[in-house]
């Protein structure tokens, strides 16, 4: 389904080349040291960074000719996912209506997706009035409504406390049950938290995908390089 072949990227201080193939839908963890190139990979797939060479396709259709908005992708970052001064409604409807028009149809769409994510509040509250967890849930609601087949999450819940994180993982799984054909890639430093929900692991080491393939959780756990990253070198 998602296939990256020697996707390379260079700038003054950093160069990377990624190859891997995800053939089944599901949730995948993206792990690796800080600065190893996790965010770069997400930015390349989303189209925020231009690649130097290589090919990339999703469901056998090349992604490279598509602009970020044309790609079948939703992205979520650690912060600045919402425009604080806009309302919950506007921030969610943004995913499907870039003009953010306030009409019945749109309001109903937002209402139903908010319900699914148990966001029970006035949708015309501004986002800045919400707590951190609620804010991320609003972003998640936008991704849900957008309903694209690739969901990329760049350390999305790092700033939240563990209980809130867990809650959001549950929402993520809910979302997946809703759209079975979705591939979700979630980058994180805390692989253990994800163990129950992931189908595989992409381990980034020095700007490339470890062994150029998707690993299973157990494989990673036993891997020496990973241990070094995870436990520190002795």
């Amino acid at each position: 389904m998602l296939k990256l072949d020697k996707i390379s990227y260079k700038n003054v201080t950093f160069s990377a080349e990624y190859t891997f193939n995800i053939s089944e839908s599901g949730i995948y963890a993206l792990v690796g040291e800080s600065g190893s190139g996790k965010s770069t990979l997400i930015n390349l797939i989303s189209g925020f960074l231009n690649i130097h060479s290589g090919s990339m396709s999703f469901k056998n259709k090349s992604l490279l000719d598509l602009s970020p908005s044309q790609r079948p992708i939703s992205t979520l970052f650690q912060n600045y996912n919402n425009f604080d001064h806009l309302t919950i409604f506007e921030n969610i409807i943004l995913g499907v209506d870039s003009k953010m028009i306030n009409n019945n149809i749109n309001r109903n769409k937002v209402k139903s997706v908010m319900k699914k994510l148990s966001l029970e509040m006035d949708m015309f509250k501004t986002v800045s009035e919400l707590s951190g967890g609620e804010q991320q849930r609003v972003s998640l609601a936008r991704c849900w409504l957008r309903n694209r087949n690739l969901l990329l999450l760049d350390e999305p819940f790092n700033a939240l406390d563990p209980g809130l994180r867990k809650d959001l993982f549950i929402q993520l799984v809910k979302m997946h049950e809703h759209n079975k054909s979705q591939i979700t890639i979630i980058s994180s430093h805390f692989l253990d938290e994800l163990v129950d929900i992931i189908n595989g692991v992409i381990f980034i080491n020095n700007g490339s995908v470890y062994e150029n393939k998707i690993l299973q959780y157990k494989e990673v756990k036993d891997n020496l390089d990973f241990k070094k990253y995870f436990l520190g070198s002795f």
Partner: peptide, 12 residues
């Protein structure tokens, strides 16, 4: 991230 958000959602 705002710019990314705007480009991903094709905001004019």
């Amino acid at each position: 991230n705002y710019l990314k958000l705007m480009s991903a959602n094709k905001i004019s």
